[in-house]
Amino acid sequence: MTTKTALVTGASSGIGESTARKLQSLGFTVYGAARRVDRLEKLAKDGILPLAMDVTDDQSMQDGIARIIEETGRIDVLVNNAGYGSYGALEDVEIDEGRRQFEVNVFGAIRLAQLALPHMRAQHAGTIVNITSMGGKLHTPLGGWYHGTKFALEALSDCLRIEVAPFGIHVVVIEPGGIATEWGGIAADNLDNSGESGAYKKQAAAVAKSLRSEANANRNSPPSVISDAIGKAVTADRPKTRYAVGFGAKPLIAARKALPDRQFDALISRATGLPRD
């Protein structure tokens, strides 16, 4: 049988690293992509193929897909995991930073799908996995740009799923809850930079504290819960369209559906310790 091939972006740590290892254990030839190849050394030692790729650089993505096809002749799974959280009040965050977040979290993912799809259509098989977030279904204070990217990727995934179904291709959305990765610290650092002064200073301090909270960190799920869900999705004959997994994902998504807007606003404001004055 032909060995199937998978590409995982953002593979240098956290969910991406765990997913690359999971897919390798399932028998895939796995390419792990990141901007810095030196951060992929651990994966390379274990037989996962390192791939230099910047999802904001079109030529870099074209070259990456071309290399995979040249070396293996196919691409069966694309896991769009590269992304980050840029927190800050919408009034404060520089518009170029907002654009960059969309470039990384949305346009990079869809561009890679565009590049992989001709090969998947030729095979009449393939799975595209887009990592969104429970933040693609709900909102938190000072997370406007981040949530905007995840809401967008959810909608794009739904449209893409319908478009490619006739070609035997699946599109799966993974909606992580709280996961023990570097994400929260990076988001908090971005928040510090954007909200250290001005009208939103108190809100910024509260949300940064929540993102760094040791209590939250202790409740967060390990990245393996996400990679296990991805493993199930890419090996299923008929995968679910969405997998909400990890700490808080299912109950918070359910709460957002059930509560009126202002009640949910109050709930999430209390949960993040937002000042009331």
Rank of each mutant, 00 (worst) to 15 (best):
F167H: 07
G88A: 03
I131W: 05
G136N: 11
S157Q: 09
L90H: 04
A82L: 06
D92N: 04
G198E: 10
G136S: 09
L117I: 12
A113I: 05
I186R: 09
A89N: 13
H139M: 11
L115G: 01
G168L: 05
I169T: 03
H124D: 02
R121A: 00
G143Q: 08
G198Y: 12
I128H: 00
E103D: 12
S197I: 13
A205G: 11
P141G: 04
E154Y: 10
E182A: 09
L160H: 08
M134D: 06
S133A: 12
A199F: 12
M120I: 01
V173R: 12
F167G: 02
L142P: 13
T132H: 07
V104K: 00
E175S: 10
G135W: 02
G126I: 00
Q203G: 15
E103W: 01
Q203R: 09
Y146K: 11
E91V: 03
G184M: 05
N190V: 03
A180W: 02
V207H: 05
W183V: 11
T149E: 01
G184L: 03
N105R: 05
P166H: 00
E214Q: 14
A155S: 15
A187N: 07
V173F: 07
P118Y: 06
K150G: 12
F107S: 08
I169W: 00
E103N: 04
V172F: 00
T140F: 14
A116M: 03
A113D: 06
T181G: 13
F167S: 09
P176I: 09
E175A: 10
G144M: 04
N105P: 14
L138W: 03
H124V: 04
N193L: 14
G195H: 08
E94D: 15
G88K: 00
A199L: 13
P166F: 06
R111V: 12
N81W: 03
T181N: 07
F107V: 14
G88F: 01
G168P: 09
S194W: 08
G88V: 00
A206M: 09
I169Q: 02
I186Y: 06
K137E: 13
P166N: 00
Q203V: 12
I131K: 07
G195M: 06
P141E: 01
A109Q: 08
N190C: 08
A89V: 14
D96H: 11
F107M: 15
I174D: 05
V171R: 04
R100V: 02
C159R: 03
E103T: 00
L156K: 10
N193G: 15
A152K: 00
G143E: 08
P141H: 02
G83A: 06
A205S: 13
T132N: 11
E175Q: 15
A113K: 03
F167Y: 14
L112N: 08
L90D: 02
G168S: 01
D189S: 15
S194L: 04
A188I: 07
E91T: 12
K137S: 15
G185V: 07
G177P: 13
N81D: 10
A152S: 15
F167W: 07
G178S: 15
D189K: 15
K209D: 14
G143W: 03
A199I: 11
